[in-house]
């Protein structure tokens, strides 16, 4: 699998997840991240990876998507994100306080980009 295809899979999985009833108000065909600036996201991801030098794409994908990149991915990520904040597992980037899960997601985007 190429990196580009992997990223497409990741975004598609998250896009599918937003179409779940009650999960979001997004229209099913709306792009999840819209025109996400991949260069900017990549820089955030690299900042996270700098603090996790042993993280690899495969391990991160297993951690973030243990059940695959299907429709259930986003609710699971969402639960993990809340738990992260409640136990202080955060990634601070230029002052922005993000969950470790978000940091890992940016890291995966960087690795797969």
């Amino acid at each position: 699998m190429t990196a580009v295809l992997a990223r497409r899979d990741l975004l598609a999985a998250l896009l599918a997840a937003t179409a779940l009833p009650g999960l979001a108000h997004a229209a099913p065909d709306a792009p999840l991240f819209g025109d996400l600036d991949h260069a900017a996201a990549g820089r955030i991801g690299k900042a996270w990876l700098a603090r996790h030098p042993d993280a690899g794409a495969a391990a991160l994908a297993r951690r973030l998507f243990p059940n695959g990149r299907g429709p259930d991915a986003l609710p699971a990520l969402r639960r993990q994100l809340s738990e992260d904040f409640r136990r202080g597992a955060v990634f601070v980037h230029r002052g922005w306080r993000l969950s470790e899960t978000e940091g890992a997601l940016f890291g995966l985007l960087a690795l797969e980009g």
Binding site: A24, D37, A41, R43, R78, L81, E102
Partner: peptide
């Protein structure tokens, strides 16, 4: 680049929070 990163993390956070586009 600062603004671009802020925009990116806001976009991801908004989606992760299950909000509208």
């Amino acid at each position: 680049p600062t603004q671009a990163e802020t925009k990116a993390l806001r976009r991801v956070a908004t989606r992760m929070d299950g909000a509208s586009p």
